[in-house]
Design a protein around this nucleic acid. Structure first.
Lengths: 217, 217
DNA sequence: GTCTATAGACTGATAGAC
DNA sequence: GTCTATCAGTCTATAGAC
C-alpha cells in the first residue's frame, strides 16, 4: 500500500496546518512543503482544496460520531430508558475530548481541526456541517428528555453554548495552558472532560430564565 | 471632517467583511470594493493589513471594556462588596451582547468581529489579545471572590467555557437562528443575555469535580 | 488625501512528460 | 502515481502623479 503514501502524507500535513492556522490561511503550497509533495499531487488525489478538506473529515469524523451514536443508543436501550443529563453530556463529549489527548498525533490534530472549522465561516465549512446535523438532532432530543422542564428553545440555546465551549477548547488546547501558565491542561482528556462535564451539568440544569412573553410550547 | 470620510468607509467595510469571513479570508481588495476606495488608501491611512485590524479594535473596543470595568468597579465599591455571581456575569456579558443587537449596524459588525477574531489564530490575533488581558484578570478575580469554594484552576476552566460560548454566539448570530428555524434569535440582546446568564450561572455554581489527585491550592 | 499603475510574490488549478 | 512547468488570477505593498 505504498501507492497511497503520498496521499496520506498530504492528508496528515493538511490536518496539521489547517488545525493550526485555519482553512483560509493554509495554502496548498504550505501543505505540499509539509508533506514533501507538490500541488499537482493534491489535485490528482483530491481535485480541489475544498475536496481535500472534505476528505480530511471523511477519514476520521465517522469514527467519532459513530461512537457517540452507538453509546447513546446503548444508553437509551431503544427508548426504554432516559439516561440522566450527565451521562448524555459525557457520551457527547468523551469521544471528541479523549482523542484530543490521544497518543496518535493524527487524532490530536483532527480534533483541533474539528473545533477550528466549526468556528469558521464560508462555503467550505457549510460542506462539512451536514455531518454533524444528525448528531445534533439526536443529542438535542436526548437532552430534552433528560430535562423535560425546559422548552425546546432553551435546549437549543444551551446546546449552542455547549458546542461553543467545546470547540473553543478543542481548537486550541494551548490557549488555556498559556493563560493559566500551565496550571490547566486542555490536552489532558481527563481534566478537560471532568471540567467540561461538571460545568455543563450545572449549566443545563440551571432553571430556565424564560422571558415573560415566551411561554413553553 | 470630510477629510476622513474614506478612512471611515474603509474601517466600516473592513469591519463588515472580516466579521463575516474572518481575517485571512478577507483581502484588502475586497475591502476597497466594499468601501469604494483603493488599496493605496488603506496603506496610506493604516500602513498594513494587520494595522488596519488593530485600528478596527482601537476604534471600538475601549468603549466595551471601559463599560465592563466601570460597572465592575461600581459593583465592588472599592473592594467593600463582593457582588454575587449573576451580577458579575451580567456585567461581563451585557456590554458586549447589548451591542450585538444595537441599532447602529457598526456595533453589530464589531461585536461579531470580536467574537470571530477570538476564535482565530496567527500573529494578527495575538496583537489583539492584549486588550482583553486586563479584563480577563479583573473578572477572573471577581468570579473567584463570588465563588470562594472553587480553586483558581476551576475558575480558569470555567472562564474559558464562558468566553467560548460567548464568542461562538457573537461571531455568527445567524447560526443559531438558522439551526432553530428562527425560534432562537441570537441578535436579540435580551434573549441572548437572559439565556447566557442563566446557563453560566448554573455552570459556574456547579460543584467542582476536582480530580482526586489535585487538591485545592 | 486620493488616485493610477505596477512591482514581486503567491494563489488554486492544469497540461503533459515520465 | 508523481513530477516539472506553467497558467491566469490574486495577494500585499509601494512609487509617484495630481
Amino acid at each position: 500500500m505504498t501507492q497511497t503514501a503520498t496521499k496520506n502524507r498530504i492528508l496528515d500535513a493538511a490536518e496539521t496546518l489547517i488545525a493550526r492556522d485555519g482553512y483560509a490561511a493554509t495554502s496548498l503550497r504550505a501543505i505540499t512543503m509539509e508533506a514533501e509533495a507538490n500541488v499537482a499531487a493534491i489535485h490528482y488525489h483530491f481535485g480541489s482544496k475544498q475536496a481535500l478538506l472534505e476528505a480530511l473529515f471523511d477519514r476520521r469524523v465517522g469514527s467519532v460520531n459513530d461512537e457517540r451514536l452507538r453509546r447513546l443508543d446503548e444508553a437509551e436501550q431503544e427508548g426504554d430508558r432516559v439516561p440522566p443529563l450527565e451521562e448524555v453530556l459525557r457520551i457527547f463529549l468523551e469521544p471528541a475530548l479523549c482523542r484530543l489527548g490521544s497518543e496518535d498525533p493524527g487524532w490530536t490534530r483532527f480534533t483541533q481541526l474539528m473545533g477550528r472549522i466549526q468556528s469558521e465561516s464560508g462555503e467550505h465549512v457549510q460542506a462539512i456541517h451536514h455531518v454533524f446535523s444528525r448528531i445534533r438532532e439526536r443529542f438535542v432530543a436526548a437532552l430534552h428528555r433528560s430535562l423535560p422542564d425546559l422548552s425546546a428553545a432553551d435546549i437549543a440555546w444551551r446546546m449552542h453554548f455547549l458546542i461553543g465551549s467545546m470547540c473553543f477548547l478543542m481548537s486550541d488546547p494551548c490557549r488555556l495552558s498559556v493563560m493559566t501558565e500551565g496550571r490547566c491542561d486542555a490536552s489532558d482528556p481527563e481534566q478537560a472532560l471532568t471540567q467540561l462535564v461538571a460545568f455543563m451539568r450545572g449549566g443545563f440544569a440551571s432553571p430556565a430564565a424564560s422571558l415573560e412573553t415566551e411561554p413553553h410550547s
